[in-house]
Design a protein around this nucleic acid. Structure first.
Length: 650
RNA sequence: GCGCCUGUAGCUCAGGGGACAGAGCAACGGCCUUCUAAGCCGUGGGUCAGGGGUUCGAAUCCCUUCAGGCGCGCCA
């Protein structure tokens, strides 16, 4: 569809230049809102009207008259107050679409793209905010791969920060324990830590002097040896495994886990620090409050509110701030550091996918090449926009302008709780809280919905629906269906909103499997497949035969409303790839969700109105078999991008 | 205070120069001897926050006011 749109735009532009001597740089070709206005349309005559001092309608008429025969185009006419309406050759369009849906994914090659996402502090269980991050990041990676890009997914583990330090303090100073006591904790270790971490925060509130415990623990974690570091290493590794388990439930995979302690151990920071000093991008503060700190001066409106116009990269005690380490990490991602990590397998997922980790041990060989990306997407919520801007500014100040421009902060708004959801969790709310549109979650206070709890609730609800509909189903099969439906519901929920909108989480909405939801889309697909199952069993065309019919489609249906509805479904199916391309361009993945939903709606309506298997007229039947096949094939592609499973039945 | 984001139907949200502003939920009324009712069809519901401007054309772009959120740490 994209090819023909561009061809029409080029042709219109050429005619304009030939006949009027001028034309806009870009000729818009859009989809008309109503049937009867053609399949594609351009409002270019309106734009030209003023420049040419002529009525738009006249210009559109002249354009239509001058339009040459074009492969794939059946007719051109002027319409409305001056639109140029183009009708397509339907048979050709159907055949082209049949080839497109059957074409294999392009090989992933060329420049490497690094997508960093998830990045949960390894001191507690993942919550629903982390799910939004992981689903967006994973969907982005899938879309990039679908469009032929080579992608490496990294999940950065910040194991030397304050949050981990506080968890270590929880084990050491509240539980009076160490590695052995931690090992004794049973299942759901991350949830145990969730509660313990909240207790540490309570301790600081009650006894502020306890905050003095923190700096030495931080320092020990950074230095990476001794008992504290050993405890930290045990806790973080075990929690990261919990996070990977959680994410595996919704089909999210990683290629590499870079650990912050290794950014330090392999002297990435020291190297970057030296470069920054050499470039005079940072200075040592000689006096005042910040005496002894290394700071980066930042100019421009974006940074106008920064205290002193500077950002501290090295604290007066010599430890590095998060931003400092992140600049070094970003440098490595682009292959701009002379050093590299060492690597070893972290674990193998049940599907055989191997997750690698950075390591201070000798490292494994052979191994894939990591880092050295040509473009980097950092999937991080909008509250860190400031820090991300500083990281990019760091690259720029080191002279890496191009890499700075190829660094993209894929930002999205946070997930919050509706007051109703918060009360369901048993949180005490005052009048002001109840009046708010949403309440922010807080890992520090243990306030939020854990990812595994939400997934459990979704699976339970889905299983209830499954067994209600099919009481005799084998329990294992029912459980598998429940999982598929839960994943579909969750992933659709997480991408259906535009990214710059706060997602106010509501239990009732999340647990609803009707209307604009993942299960609605899954149901449409299952129904389409059901048609082929029934037909194949009755000796009719199966999916492979339908694909052959589609490649030879004639699509010459008796003119009328029915034909237009069939055609409208085909047009919607055809818009998939341009939707994906646009989603990648704008980084607005919700467009894919909205597209798939609209397509499922059209199909459900079609399904209800037009029998496929039992249609006696061969022309209609073939057209419907072809449409059902095209719908199913395209939806499978869309599901693969969104990570939504196709349940065996519903 | 400064910066960023948001304001569209009762609620949650699409649409971000182009043809009469859309969807889901909720409400109401229909449709299961016909490929699965997690579905389909229909009804009602709008000062696109307010004001000014640009344009042949503005929910969309610009200015401004109001309301809400987030950010501005030797936390991340």
């Amino acid at each position: 569809m994209e090819a023909i749109r561009q061809e029409i735009a080029r042709t219109v532009r050429r005619i304009l230049l030939e006949r009027f001597g001028e034309a806009p740089e870009r000729v818009a070709v859009e989809y008309p809102p109503q049937p009867g206005m053609g399949d594609l349309a351009s409002p270019v005559a309106f734009e030209m009207a003023r420049r040419l001092r002529r009525a738009p309608r006249d210009i559109a008429r002249e354009l239509a008259a001058a339009f040459p025969p074009l492969p794939g185009v059946a007719g051109v006419a002027s319409g409305g107050a001056g639109y140029l309406n183009v009708s397509l050759d339907r048979a050709a369009a159907a055949r082209a679409l049949a080839r497109e849906v059957a074409s294999p994914a392009p090989p992933s090659d060329g420049e490497k793209i690094i997508v960093e996402h998830t990045n949960i502090n390894p001191n507690k269980a993942a919550h629903i905010g982390h799910l939004r991050n992981a689903v967006l990041g994973d969907t982005l990676a899938r879309c990039l791969r679908f469009s032929g890009r080579r992608v490496e997914v990294q999940n950065y583990i910040d194991d030397t920060g304050v949050q981990v330090a506080d968890l270590v303090i929880g084990f050491r100073d509240i539980l009076r324990g160490g590695v052995e006591e931690a090992k004794a904790v049973g299942d759901r270790f991350d949830q145990f830590c969730w509660d313990l971490y909240a207790r540490v925060t309570e301790m600081y509130t009650a006894f502020p002097e306890k905050l003095a415990l923190r700096p030495p623990v931080l320092k020990a974690l950074e230095e990476g040896h001794g008992e504290i570091a050993a405890l930290g290493a045990y806790l973080t590794r075990r929690i990261v495994n919990c996070h990977l388990d959680t994410m595996a439930r919704i089909g999210v995979r990683y290629d590499l886990l870079p650990w912050e302690r290794d950014v330090l151990a392999f002297r990435f920071w020291e190297t970057t620090f030296a470069l920054l000093k050499e470039r005079r991008a940072i200075t040592l503060v000689a006096e005042g409050e910040r005496q002894g700190c290394w700071v980066m001066a930042l100019e421009g409106r974006r940074f106008a509110d920064l205290k002193e116009g500077e950002k501290i990269l090295v604290r007066s005690d010599g430890t590095v701030t998060y931003v400092g380490k992140d600049i070094a990490y970003q440098m490595w991602k682009f292959g701009l550091l002379p050093a590299d990590f060492r690597y070893e397998p972290f674990r193998d997922e049940p599907d055989g996918h191997r997750v690698w980790t950075t390591t201070r041990r000798p490292g494994a060989s052979p191994r894939p090449a990591f880092g050295g990306g040509a473009r980097v997407y950092n999937v991080i919520d909008v509250r860190q926009a400031y820090l991300q801007a500083i990281v990019v500014e760091g690259l720029r100040s080191l002279g890496h302008r191009e890499q700075a421009e190829r660094s993209t902060h894929f930002s999205y708004e946070m997930v919050a709780l509706t007051p109703k959801s918060a009360e369901t969790l048993g949180l005490p709310l005052n009048e002001e809280d109840r009046g708010r549109p949403y309440l922010e979650m807080s890992g520090r206070r243990g306030l939020g919905i854990k990812a595994d709890d939400l997934l459990d609730a979704l699976e339970k609800e889905a299983l209830r629906e499954v067994t209600w509909r099919a009481p005799d189903l084998d329990p294992r099969e029912a459980a598998a269906l429940g999982r598929d439906i839960a994943v579909g519901a969750l992933r659709y929920l997480m991408i259906k909103y535009t990214r710059n909108k706060v997602l106010a989480f509501d239990f009732d909405e999340a647990l609803s499997f009707e209307g604009e939801s993942g299960p609605y889309l899954q149901y449409a697909v299952v129904r389409a497949r059901g048609i082929f199952e029934k037909m194949a069993a009755a000796g009719g065309p199966d999916e492979a035969e339908a694909a052959r019919l589609a490649r030879a489609a004639e699509f010459n249906l008796p003119a009328g409303e029915g034909a237009e509805e069939h055609w409208a479904l085909l047009m919607q199916i055809a818009r998939f790839r341009e939707t994906v391309a646009q989603a990648l361009e704008t980084l607005e993945l919700s467009q894919i969700a909205k597209y798939a939903f609209a397509l499922a709606q059209k199909f459900n309506s079609f399904y209800h109105k037009y029998p496929v298997m039992k249609e006696p007229d061969a022309r209609w039947k073939t057209a419907r078999v072809v449409l059902t096949h095209l719908f199913l094939a395209q939806m499978r592609h869309a599901f693969a991008l969104m990570g939504i499973p196709v349940p065996a039945r519903m």
